[in-house]
Amino acid sequence: MSGLLGLYNYWIVIILMMTGFYAVIARPNLIKQIIGLFIFQTSVFILFISMANIEGGTAPIIKEGIRLYSNPLPHVLILTAIVVSLATTALGLALVVRIKEAYGTINEDNIHVQDEED
């Protein structure tokens, strides 16, 4: 794979990353921000897995007659990262639920207004 197509994967990943980033910084809704974070995380996963790929390689499960395997190390890192990302997302959502109970809203702007009133 040569030329611009060789970097295509990375560029799309960056666009996805920026989409998630935009949702996190521009949207006042907390759940939407967490969804944005989810998109961001997934794009990082795709970046790592793209780097692990070797042209003509197959999945790193050793089998007779196959010589070229993709790099297993990023797979391991991302596999655990996915589970951890879920755990952190759950923590974030728990915070959102508590914020809703405390402030009655999950809109960041309204929360700031209420904070200033206090």
Binding site: I31, I78, I82, L86, A90
Partner: peptide, 30 residues
Amino acid sequence: LDAVDVALTEAAIGAGISTILLLATIALTT
């Protein structure tokens, strides 16, 4: 991209549990 273990994890977590948790949060909020 040949990352079968990762695909298994992502499907079970992303499409499964994290969707369910998001839904549960939405049901509790708005």
